[in-house]
């Protein structure tokens, strides 16, 4: 029973972690706490799905589910690029709250656009990973998406980590993270780093959406509600640490599944997550793995 809950929690936490890594990447790269990541993922996913059924706009090309995954990722990356270039870059020098509100506005626009642009019919719900089948993992019944989440997380975060630590551009990214002005003086093209953070952030957000959105129907802000759990994980782990984001989200996943089932919880999983976040913020504002600067 406990093992079952634990496995389900870890799988859930992995999906949260993908989104959390997107948030952390954008936060460390650009000092922007973005609440738009969830909606970027959802929008790309719904767009790709809509075009799968109705044909790509202008071209009219229809494609299958595997191609849809690729299209969704491309849309997500493109959205990251556009948002960075045209909205966030002009705001780079503004106060953190201004930037947060700008991402709020983006999330709001995207959620409303989803409702307006995409026909959504639960029967036509995109099913990239067959819904009906369950896989038995040590007694826990997992959907294919839930089964896929941990390995996908491992691969994406692993490669991101390798990229940031082993390549020259990764070094430039980390330099920008610690001090954009000094990085610029040293010849780092800081704007490219910002762009990178948003594009990869958008990509990760789409992957998270692909793994989580299919199970639910199209409700605006559904992904943002999901984002909150990722955010909770990121805060518990430390907002500027990739490791922290992953560990924090796994904790959140496990805690939320464990408490969902017990009479201890008086408002489902969210009560326990709220408590976890508050305790972290009050006891160790920088989080488990965060640097002192994570306590903004």
């Amino acid at each position: 029973m406990f093992l079952e809950e634990l496995i389900r929690g870890l799988s859930l936490g992995s999906a949260y972690a993908l989104l959390a890594v997107a948030v952390v990447l954008v936060f460390t790269g650009t000092r922007t706490l973005s609440v738009a990541m969830g909606e970027i993922g959802a929008f790309s996913f719904y767009a790709a799905n809509d075009w799968r059924l109705d044909g790509l706009p202008l071209v009219g090309w229809r494609y299958g589910v595997p191609t849809m995954l690729l299209v969704a990722c491309l849309v997500g990356a493109a959205m990251g690029l556009l948002i960075e270039r045209f909205i966030m870059r002009p705001l780079v020098a503004r106060a953190p709250l201004d930037k947060l509100i700008a991402t709020l506005a983006i999330a709001l626009s995207l959620a409303l656009l989803e409702l307006n642009l995409f026909s959504f019919d639960p029967i036509q719900a995109p099913v990239p990973f067959a819904q009906g089948t369950f896989y038995d993992v040590f007694g826990a019944e997992l959907t294919s998406a839930q089964l896929l989440a941990p390995p996908v997380l491992l691969v994406t975060v692993g490669s991101l980590y390798a990229f940031l630590t082993k390549t020259k551009f990764g070094l430039a990214t980390r330099a920008t993270t610690s001090d954009p002005d000094v990085a610029r003086l040293l010849g780092v093209k800081v704007n490219r780093v910002y762009l990178f953070a948003w594009v990869v952030g958008g990509l990760l957000a789409v992957i998270a959406a692909l793994l989580t959105a299919p199970a639910t129907s199209l409700i605006p802000f559904n992904q943002t509600t999901l984002l909150l759990r990722s955010l909770a994980g990121a805060i518990i782990g430390g907002l500027d640490s990739l490791t922290g984001a992953v560990v924090g989200c796994l904790i959140v996943g496990v805690v939320s599944t464990l408490f969902q089932a017990t009479p201890l919880s008086f408002a489902g999983a969210d009560g326990s997550i709220l408590l976890l976040v508050l305790v972290t913020l009050l006891v160790r504002p920088r989080g488990l793995f965060g640097s002192p600067r994570a306590a903004f």
Binding site: L33, P96, L97, T225, L231, I235, D270, P285, F296
Partner: peptide, 17 residues
């Protein structure tokens, strides 16, 4: 105890809760 964006996130948690 905390300030700025962290407060925003804490209030977000209250909203969901």
């Amino acid at each position: 105890r905390i300030r700025g964006l962290q407060v925003a996130v804490a209030t977000l948690a209250f909203q969901i809760f």
